[in-house]
Simulated scan of single mutants.
Amino acid sequence: MNKTKNTAEAILDTAQSIVQDVGFNGFSYAHIAEKVGIRTASIHYHFPNKEDLGEALISRYYRHFISAIAQIDTETHNNLEKLRKFTLLYGGPVQDYCTCLGVMFSTDLATLSGMTREGLAQLFTTNLEWLERVLDQGRSEGHLNFEGSAVVQALQFLASLQGAQLLARTFRDISRFDMIAEGLVSALT
């Protein structure tokens, strides 16, 4: 990997970490430059403005999410287990008392560029479509049991995980996320 690629990735890694902690409007390029150990001009070289950085962040996050759910689909055939693994995706940021990038971007929605908002909508749509498919298949195969439509169940599942992240962060108590995530999965058996 070349130095330019390494620098761009380091910038994105650092920016993502900061956004997941303080939100998109809670930092400047100077904060990233200090953490990465570069000048702000180097950040502007890769991401001319903050909107470009936001678009790159959500695009990369989306690609990683697609890869993660593809891995779940490949490794796991039981839909209940797929949902358990999905909750682990949302549990990752909680370990550092942060939330996922999507949740934090949502709090700054009004100030995001149109492309970043579209990327965020695409991320949530993909989450919901995957959840709906897994829920439908799980009910058809007898692994899952719930009333109503899979669409509504998917919305409730995703909203609950996102809320669980916020509660765990607010109370600085990872067990709150774990209790909610396990309750969501258990309620489907």
Score class of each variant (00 low, 15 high):
residue 52 D to E: 13
residue 130 W to R: 08
residue 7 T to H: 07
residue 69 I to D: 00
residue 180 I to V: 15
residue 75 E to G: 03
residue 120 L to Q: 08
residue 8 A to T: 05
residue 148 G to C: 10
residue 46 H to E: 02
residue 10 A to P: 12
residue 73 D to H: 02
residue 100 C to N: 00
residue 75 E to M: 04
residue 153 Q to M: 12
residue 65 F to E: 11
residue 17 S to L: 12
residue 178 D to A: 12
residue 137 Q to P: 02
residue 176 R to H: 14
residue 26 G to R: 03
residue 93 P to S: 02
residue 95 Q to P: 08
residue 78 N to C: 03
residue 186 S to A: 15
residue 88 L to E: 07
residue 98 C to R: 12
residue 13 D to N: 15
residue 54 G to N: 06
residue 115 M to H: 15
residue 99 T to A: 04
residue 113 S to F: 12
residue 43 I to R: 12
residue 161 L to R: 00
residue 138 G to Q: 00
residue 13 D to Y: 07
residue 144 L to H: 06
residue 101 L to G: 04
residue 66 I to G: 11
residue 112 L to V: 09
residue 56 A to F: 07
residue 30 A to T: 15
residue 3 K to R: 10
residue 71 Q to W: 06
residue 103 V to M: 00
residue 147 E to K: 15
residue 59 S to H: 12
residue 179 M to Y: 13
residue 76 T to I: 07
residue 142 G to D: 03
residue 41 A to P: 14
residue 152 V to P: 04
residue 103 V to C: 09
residue 79 N to I: 00
residue 110 A to I: 09
residue 36 V to R: 10
residue 127 N to T: 00
residue 62 Y to C: 04
residue 31 H to N: 15
residue 31 H to Y: 09
residue 6 N to C: 10
residue 14 T to V: 11
residue 35 K to Y: 11
residue 45 Y to N: 07
residue 89 L to I: 14
residue 45 Y to K: 11
residue 56 A to C: 09
residue 38 I to A: 12
residue 26 G to V: 00
residue 168 A to E: 03
residue 143 H to Q: 09
residue 16 Q to K: 13
residue 61 Y to P: 09
residue 62 Y to A: 05
residue 22 V to E: 11
residue 48 P to N: 08
residue 175 S to F: 07
residue 139 R to Y: 02
residue 129 E to Y: 07
residue 80 L to E: 11
residue 104 M to S: 05
residue 155 L to E: 03
residue 110 A to S: 15
residue 128 L to A: 00
residue 112 L to Q: 13
residue 22 V to T: 15
residue 2 N to Y: 06
residue 74 T to M: 08
residue 130 W to C: 06
residue 60 R to M: 06
residue 174 I to H: 08
residue 99 T to P: 03
residue 5 K to Q: 13
residue 71 Q to T: 14
residue 98 C to A: 08
residue 130 W to M: 05
residue 26 G to Y: 01
residue 141 E to H: 06
residue 134 V to M: 03
residue 84 R to W: 08
residue 5 K to M: 09
residue 14 T to F: 10
residue 155 L to S: 05
residue 158 L to E: 00
residue 10 A to S: 15
residue 167 L to Q: 13
